[in-house]
């Protein structure tokens, strides 16, 4: 099967610390991978390299066979863990922005998703609560027909009802032609949507495998496994 993402011996060092020390990871087409690890384990660093906004110190990462750049950005839909929308924007401006810049953006889908998330296209981005902002970001990101979706903590700081909605939206809008990486530390809420999981600790992938096989072989839930690895 075809690998949408391949990372080989990926390293990223800063002056005073090494965020990634030789991470190896592959994701096949049509799969959802959970990248699990505590804060500071290198999750976000990895995702930022894949999104093309951080550059590795050594090793390589290929998306659809290419190094991160203009092409990969056009096929990667990235949900960052930051509030990156312009403050002057209304929700409909944000939708228009994505439509203007991404040729794979599906406006109809975006408005359907906004309705599903109970967001009003005329409210301004500034006025939204944290949960609503997260829903808006997810709407924008999922309305693209990307080859690879990268979701950094999509459930972070969101109340349980919003979590349900976000999970539903992810499952409904996932297609077998695309792949997804999701990071989280709320493993319990989301483990059933992973095909594969990779545990990242201290900048290294310490365990990667099929979620069902891991359950079968270890007789544990992914959540329990996570707690065991990261005690």
């Amino acid at each position: 099967m075809y690998n949408v993402l391949e990372a080989e011996n990926l390293c990223k060092s800063y002056l005073n610390k090494r965020a990634l020390r030789g991470a190896n990871l592959t994701i096949q087409q049509g799969r959802i991978l959970g990248l699990l690890g505590p804060n500071g384990s290198g999750k976000t660093t990895f995702l930022k390299i894949a999104a093309g906004i951080l550059h590795p110190s050594s090793g390589k990462l290929l998306i659809d066979g290419q190094e991160p750049g203009v092409y990969t950005k056009s096929i990667v839909s990235y949900l960052p863990d930051t509030e990156y929308l312009f403050k002057w924007m209304k929700i409909k401006d944000a939708v228009q922005y994505f439509k203007d810049f991404y040729s794979d953006f599906d406006e109809k889908k975006a408005f359907a998703l906004l309705e599903f998330m109970k967001l009003d296209a005329n409210s301004s981005v500034k006025s939204l609560s944290k949960g609503m902002k997260e829903k808006l970001k997810l709407t924008l990101v999922l309305s693209r027909k990307a080859k690879l979706y990268i979701l950094d903590e999509p459930l972070g700081g969101v109340d349980p009802t919003a979590r349900e909605k976000i999970l539903d939206a992810i499952i409904n809008n996932f297609s077998e032609n695309s792949s997804m990486i999701i990071t989280t530390h709320l493993v319990n809420d989301i483990e059933r949507i992973f095909d594969e999981v990779a545990f990242i600790s201290d900048g290294e992938i310490v365990l990667q495998g099929n979620a069902e096989e891991l359950r079968l072989n270890k007789n544990k839930s992914i959540d329990e496994l996570y707690r065991e690895v990261f005690q």
Binding site: I171, R192, F194, D195
Partner: peptide, 10 residues
């Protein structure tokens, strides 16, 4: 998959 909130591949 939507009803059970489970990965479609599963």
């Amino acid at each position: 998959a939507t009803i059970l909130k489970v990965n479609p591949n599963t």
